[in-house]
């Protein structure tokens, strides 16, 4: 999806003379694509070249990126990405280096020997996204001491179904609208219907009042007459609305409840599997595998059931 999107939108080329040109100059023969983001130039390189690129970025005099300010993992659904934000105190320029890798082979070379600060940043990314930084001196989980068994920042984490992050949310909302329109035959706006009803009511009330006054009735009787007229109108409307199909949003609501139930089931399963694995004394990797298998089994069961 991400690739489709990047093809759709035109990538803004960095202006000539930017950091991207310096990189091309310092690293001839390295495949890289540059892009101008809102503030910095972002350069995407291949995983194989990363160490070389980073080494040059730090040590080349033209680049001299002495400060690694941030390391972020990004999940693009089809690919994982690590973004390194670098800054040079001596030259005062900044750049973002991006590297992508497939989600099932999330190995990355470490850069913690180049910048000490990358040590904790890499540990964090490893824990939250499941990267494996090869050569890292100490890749223990950082934020959760015992590890979670899954990677919470990936878009495909076990509870993703009940999450309303934008892609799904927007899609679901569009689908719901389209579905309702298709089932009703004519696109019927709830608000418009209400306004129409209110206008009708106003007409009825006015009519009933005038009639009552014409007959010379007292205030109480007038009110009763208006009430009766309104009731008649409501009954008429109800009779008209009877053959209408069931409310359109009902289905998504059911869907959501089912999703929540499924997610809860998954959470229970994950907890159980993890506890079992711990009791067995399994390593973290084994534990993670056990959880993944259990989840797969559950998915198959759900499909068949």
């Amino acid at each position: 999806m991400a690739q489709e999107r990047s093809q759709e939108t035109s990538v803004a080329e960095p202006p000539p003379g930017s950091v991207a040109d310096l990189f091309r100059e310092a690293l001839p023969g390295v495949q890289m694509s540059a892009e101008q983001t809102a503030l910095d130039v972002a350069i995407t390189v291949r995983r194989e070249d990363l160490i070389r690129v980073m080494q040059t970025a730090k040590e080349d005099e033209r680049l001299a990126f002495d400060f690694m300010r941030s390391l972020s993992g990004v999940d693009h659904l089809d690919e994982l990405e690590v973004v390194y934000h670098l800054y040079s105190y001596s030259l005062g320029h900044a750049v973002a280096i991006k590297v992508r890798c497939p989600p099932d082979d999330a190995h990355m070379p470490t850069i913690s020997h180049l910048w000490q600060t990358a040590n904790w940043h890499e540990r964090e990314a490893a824990e939250l996204f499941g990267f494996v930084f090869d050569g890292h001196p100490d890749l223990r989980p950082l934020l959760t001491e015992e590890g979670l068994g899954y990677y919470i920042m990936r878009k495909t984490h076990p509870l993703a179904e009940i999450e309303e992050w934008q892609e799904d949310y927007l899609k679901a909302a569009e689908e719901a609208v389209a579905q309702a329109a298709a089932e009703a035959g004519v696109p019927m706006d709830e608000r418009a219907r209400k306004i129409e009803l209110a206008q009708k009511k106003a007409v009825v009330i006015k009519k009933a009042r005038e009639e009552a006054r014409g007959r010379g009735l007292a205030g109480d009787e007038e009110r009763a007459a208006v009430k009766a007229a309104l009731k008649a109108l409501e009954e008429e409307e109800a009779a008209k609305a009877e053959p209408k199909p069931a409310e359109a949003p009902a289905k998504p609501a059911d869907d959501r409840a089912a999703k929540i139930a499924l997610a809860q089931k998954k959470a229970a399963l994950i907890k159980k599997t993890r506890d079992e694995a711990r009791a067995r004394g399994a390593s973290q990797e084994e534990e993670r595998q056990a959880v993944a298998e259990a989840l797969k089994a559950l998915a198959a069961e759900e499909k068949s059931g």
């Binding site: 999107r5 972020s72 993992g73 990004v74 992050w165 934008q166 892609e167 949310y169 927007l170």
Partner: peptide
């Protein structure tokens, strides 16, 4: 990535 929510916020 468009829409009203951040795709990633680090």
């Amino acid at each position: 990535k468009g829409g009203d929510k951040p795709y990633r916020l680090k």
